[in-house]
């Protein structure tokens, strides 16, 4: 993937000296109906960083993503975006859901689904058709524009969701186990596409997954959460060089070491 070179991708996980973080959690707690979901979550995400979140089920991975998106709000503490508290969804923050079957409009064609984002952004009708074609080509859905979501495979539906997210020209991509329901080959292909898209756009990514290898392969940094209540228990920096390769990156000693470290962490958590 030669086009995947981009200066943003070489930034180290820790924020460059002095620069304010793009997203920050300050002692975030969340209690819903007496259930403590999250306790004292604090971490920062720099601009252009690719942060993956792992942890056993029920640890609040998706909840942290929803707090960043503004679809949910903390009970106490603060989530900030560019230094200001998050009050609600922003148009430059795109969310990609795991359940593509529900997140796409079944009555709109592939082109129509991408168009939804453009319409919401107020893109004039005359410009939409070209942008839609560009986006569909970019995610590998060339020629599928007139098909409905239920005519597309799971992988293609997820590509369509990527296209809709990209239509927002997002500075931040929030991805909630986007490839969890896909087969291994499709998943790897989409992982590489996300990496090259991110490299090309310089977007910041917050990526929730239960696949530890995926987290290491994609991320600049992996945050491990523990459940009952959800809290940050581990943070590892991934210093694998970019662009990454499905075969060679996964065979490096660092990769195997990080995978082992996270594996032990999860095993300990579930013991």
């Amino acid at each position: 993937m030669p086009q995947a070179f981009a200066p943003e991708q070489t930034t180290t996980p820790s924020a460059p000296g002095g620069a304010a973080p793009l997203i920050a959690f300050h002692d975030v707690c969340l209690t819903i109906a007496g259930n403590e979901i999250l306790r004292d979550i604090s971490f920062e995400i720099s601009r252009g960083e690719f942060v993956c979140v792992v942890g056993p089920s029920g640890c609040g991975k998706t909840t942290t993503l929803r707090l960043i998106s503004g679809l949910m709000h903390p009970s106490s503490g603060q989530v900030t975006f560019e230094g200001r508290p998050v009050t609600g969804p922003r148009q430059d923050v795109a969310i990609m859901f795991q359940d593509y079957g529900r997140a796409l409009l079944p009555w709109r064609t592939a082109a129509g689904n991408v168009s939804l984002a453009l319409e919401s952004l107020g893109v004039p009708r005359s410009e939409r058709a070209d942008r839609i074609q560009d986006l569909l080509v970019k995610v590998g859905l060339k020629g599928q524009d007139k098909r409905f979501p239920n005519q597309l495979s799971g992988g293609m539906q997820q590509r369509l969701q990527i296209a809709r997210c990209l239509a927002q020209n997002p500075s931040v991509l929030l991805m909630d186990e986007p490839f969890g329901a896909l087969d291994a080959m499709t998943r790897q292909a989409l992982q590489d596409e996300v990496l090259s898209i991110v490299a090309a756009t310089g977007a910041t990514v917050f990526f929730v997954t239960h696949d530890l290898e995926e987290a290491v392969y994609l991320g600049d940094r992996v945050i491990g959460l523990l459940p009952h209540p959800g809290r940050v228990a581990k943070t590892v920096s991934v210093d694998l060089p970019r662009p990454r390769d499905q075969l060679s990156s996964r065979e490096t000693p660092q990769f195997l070491h990080l995978r082992r470290e996270l594996f032990d962490f999860i095993k300990e958590a579930e013991a």
């Binding site: 998106s69 679809l71 409009l105």
Partner: peptide
């Protein structure tokens, strides 16, 4: 989920 999509898209 579609209502969430609509909120995310503003």
């Amino acid at each position: 989920r579609l209502y969430e999509v609509s909120r995310a898209l503003g």
